[in-house]
Simulated scan of single mutants.
Amino acid sequence: MDFDIKDMQLFLKIADTGSLTQGAKERARSLSAASARLKLLESQLGTKLFYREPGGLTLTSSGEMLLAHAKNIIREYELTRKKFSAKQAHGTSRLRILANATSIAEIVPDILVSMLKRDGNVSVDVFPRNAKQAIRGILDFDSDLALITGDEDLCGLNSINFFTDHISVLFPWEHELSSAQAPRLSDIVKYPLLGIYGSTLTDFIREHVEASRLHAEFKILIDSFDPIARLAEANAGVAIIPESVAQRLCQKYRTKALRINEAWAFRERRAVFGDIDFLSFHARTFLNILIEKYFQIDANSVALEDMIEK
Rank of each mutant, 00 (worst) to 15 (best):
H175K: 11
T164G: 02
P192D: 06
S159L: 10
W173V: 09
S143K: 10
L194G: 08
G156K: 11
A182P: 01
K190G: 06
S186M: 05
D203Y: 12
A182N: 13
D165F: 03
D151E: 15
W173Y: 13
G156H: 08
P192A: 02
H166T: 07
S186H: 10
G198R: 05
L147N: 03
V169P: 04
I205M: 07
S143Q: 12
E152S: 14
G198K: 00
L157I: 09
F162W: 05
Y191E: 04
D151I: 12
S168R: 07
H166G: 00
A182D: 05
T149F: 14
C155A: 13
Y191P: 05
T200R: 10
P183W: 02
T202W: 01
D165P: 08
T200A: 05
Y191D: 02
E176Y: 02
F171R: 11
F171W: 10
H175I: 10
I196Y: 11
S168I: 01
I160Y: 09
Y191C: 07
A146D: 06
G195E: 04
A146N: 06
N158C: 14
V169F: 02
A180K: 15
F162Y: 15
Y197S: 13
N161K: 15
G198T: 10
F162K: 11
L185Y: 10
D151Q: 15
